[in-house]
Nucleic acid binder design. Structure first.
Length: 218
DNA sequence: ATATCGATTATCT
DNA sequence: GATAATCGATATG
């Protein structure tokens, strides 16, 4: 298995990074790196789009339904993976925020592939004929989970601050540029809250274009 | 026990 | 731009 030379730079973020309100974590995660490593694969991607889901008071959040078997990770300690299954087809990856007992999370909406795009394409079952095809790998929450082999059975509850978990979040020398903010995508409650964050102009951000601050005028 | 619906995506027109 | 696909969690009876 090939291993990139920058492997040693991908030290996991500390847990304190996630022990904050989701809005702040979502913003701070832009430009960080998601890493998947196990015996047979090494994949990395730059985080370019996130959404914050607040605690029980956020009607769009899964934690609004309370602490259930499904949402327990959101109420647990920060820095852990909350993976849920959606629309009968896809998984989505979140990281828990706040301190133990208070719900909150950040949804990973899009990555820019850094290493392992061939393996991502295999998992996604798409051909990499042109550079445009790279956009199909990790632009969208369901897509990036598929590209990284993320499932609920495998990854829900795993510690994203430990490189022994096989999935973690790291910092490198990259500096985020201009950050765009908009309403969250695909929800039907609290639709106007500006809780989506993305690197302005980055082509891997999901959506038709980069969503405007106001999704629709009326 | 059954019905509804979703933090999506691919594939049409 | 619109819609089908697909199934687990949740709500309702």
């Amino acid at each position: 298995m090939p291993t990139p030379s920058h492997r040693d730079d991908l030290t996991p973020l500390e847990r304190a990074f996630f022990a904050r309100p989701p809005q702040r974590v979502a913003r701070a995660l832009l430009g960080k790196v998601l890493v998947r490593q196990d015996k047979n694969e090494f994949l990395t991607g730059r985080i370019v789009e996130t959404e914050a889901y607040l605690g029980k008071d956020d009607p769009a959040s899964h934690s609004a339904a309370g602490n259930t078997a499904r949402t327990a990770v959101l109420f647990g300690p920060p820095g852990h993976a909350y993976v849920y299954f959606i629309y009968g087809n896809y998984y989505c990856l979140n990281v828990s925020c706040e301190r133990d007992g208070k719900a909150g999370g950040v949804l990973f909406r899009a990555l820019e592939p850094l290493f392992g795009s061939e393996q991502m394409a295999q998992k996604r079952k798409v051909a990499l004929a042109t550079t445009r095809d790279l956009l199909k790998l990790t632009s969208g929450p369901g897509r990036l989970a598929q590209a990284f082999g993320i499932t609920r059975a495998r990854d829900n509850g795993c510690d994203l601050t430990s490189d022994t978990s096989g999935l973690w979040i790291a910092r490198d020398n990259f500096r985020a540029g201009k950050v765009g903010i908009s309403a969250r995508i695909g929800i039907t409650k609290a639709v106007d809250d500006p809780l989506r964050f993305f690197l302005s102009g980055n082509p891997f951000v999901s959506g038709p274009k980069n969503q405007p601050a106001r999704p629709k005028t009326r």
